[in-house]
Amino acid sequence: MDVIRLLALRDTPLSVDEVLAAVGDHAAGGTTVFVGTVREQDHGKRVTRLSYSAHPSADRELRSVAEKVASDFPVTALAAVHRLGDLELGETAVIVAVACPHRDEAFMAARRLIDDLKAQVPIWKHQEFADGSAEWVGACE
């Protein structure tokens, strides 16, 4: 069975339960889940709107990142989902989960998965602030 159990870019709300269920594995002694949410402040400014968009190659790049993590760590199961479109404060923007034989490996692999996703997958964040300013962020945060 492929260790990459779930990869998705979605314009609908994300489910921690779905991601956790996807990485359930009897060979794993440790499972790490990271949930990224829309925060109300960034750069000391109040966020009023936030939207994510992705390049057409984003699915392919997400798979590449996942495959690299799975080859560098003893991953038994891996999942990553990212939200696209308009999000409200507090909504879940990204969830990654990794199951490994031991907890330290699971923590390290999950950290690499979210960091590489942010750095390499072409997902852009547009946020608007209460002061009327806005910014595009070149990779998801």
Rank of each mutant, 00 (worst) to 15 (best):
T76S: 13
H82I: 12
A27W: 00
R111Y: 08
V23I: 13
G24Q: 15
A139K: 13
E91G: 07
D72K: 10
H126V: 06
T31N: 10
V16S: 01
V65E: 12
K45E: 12
E91N: 01
Q120W: 11
P101M: 09
R10W: 06
A27H: 04
R46N: 08
L113T: 05
C100R: 03
E135S: 06
W136N: 01
S71T: 15
V96C: 03
L117V: 15
V3Y: 05
E18V: 15
A8V: 01
I4H: 01
F73S: 02
R49W: 06
L62Q: 10
I4T: 02
V23D: 07
D42Y: 14
L14E: 10
D116M: 13
S51I: 03
M1V: 03
L78F: 06
C140E: 14
A22I: 13
V19T: 04
E67P: 12
V121R: 05
E67H: 10
E88L: 03
V23S: 10
E141C: 10
V81H: 07
A58R: 10
Q41T: 13
A80E: 00
D115S: 13
E67G: 14
V121D: 04
G85E: 09
L14Q: 04
P101H: 02
R60L: 14
V121C: 02
W136C: 04
V94W: 01
R60K: 15
D42P: 12
V94P: 00
L113H: 13
S71A: 15
A109W: 01
T32R: 09
L89W: 01
L50Y: 04
D86N: 02
V23A: 07
D2M: 00
V137Y: 03
E67D: 12
G24F: 00
A54M: 14
V35N: 11
E128W: 11
A99I: 02
C100N: 07
L7N: 11
A97Q: 09
V3G: 00
G90H: 02
A21S: 15
R83S: 10
T76H: 13
A28F: 12
E128K: 05
A110E: 07
V38S: 09
V35E: 13
R39W: 05
R83L: 08
G36R: 01
W124N: 03
L87C: 01
T32V: 13
A79K: 06
T76A: 12
D86M: 01
R5M: 03
E61D: 14
T12V: 13
D116E: 15
A99E: 05
A119L: 11
A110K: 01
V96I: 01
A28M: 11
F129P: 02
V137L: 07
L14S: 09
H43D: 15
A110R: 04
K118A: 11
S53Y: 10
I123L: 02
A106Q: 05
A99S: 13
E91F: 00
A79D: 12
I95H: 09
A21Y: 07
